[in-house]
């Protein structure tokens, strides 16, 4: 038992020594890189949003949240409508833990 404990202690000590080296090996932070959307290969709505990303990031962020909510709600209610056609009871369930 003591042998197993000593071995575990050895492994933990080795891990502790190795950790800083592993952390330092990680790459350079990407936060300072300026990304520009390529508007040459897209048209229509996608061109508009790619352009908005380049020119007004705050408006693009607002649009992202609004469109995500709209898409989530639309798909959620659409799937809800389709699922209600399956004949399953989707309004009640019994809670049993075990």
């Amino acid at each position: 038992m003591r042998g197993i404990f000593n071995r575990c202690r050895g492994v933990l000590a080795a891990l502790w020594v190795m950790l800083p080296a592993v952390a330092q090996a990680s790459g350079e932070a990407a936060g300072n890189i300026v990304v520009v959307a390529d508007t040459r290969r897209v048209t229509g709505v996608m061109h508009y949003f790619a352009d908005l990303y380049n020119s007004d990031i705050l408006m693009f962020a607002i649009w992202t949240v609004v469109l995500t909510v709209a898409m989530g709600c639309t798909l959620g209610f659409l799937m809800d409508f389709i699922m209600s056609r399956t004949g399953l009871d989707l309004k009640s369930r019994k809670i049993v833990e075990h």
């Binding site: 990407a30 936060g31 300026v34 990304v35 996608m46 949003f49 990303y53 990031i57 705050l58 693009f60 962020a61 607002i62 992202t64 949240v65 469109l67 995500t68 898409m71 989530g72 798909l75 959620g76 659409l78 799937m79």
Partner: peptide, 25 residues
């Protein structure tokens, strides 16, 4: 989180929508 990450410019909206179609099912 989506709002703050978009302000940092690290989001691909087209991919979000494509993934959401699969996620809906």
């Amino acid at each position: 989180g989506a709002f703050t990450y978009t302000l940092k410019g690290r989001i691909e909206l087209v991919a979000v929508f494509v993934m959401l179609t699969g996620a809906a099912i």
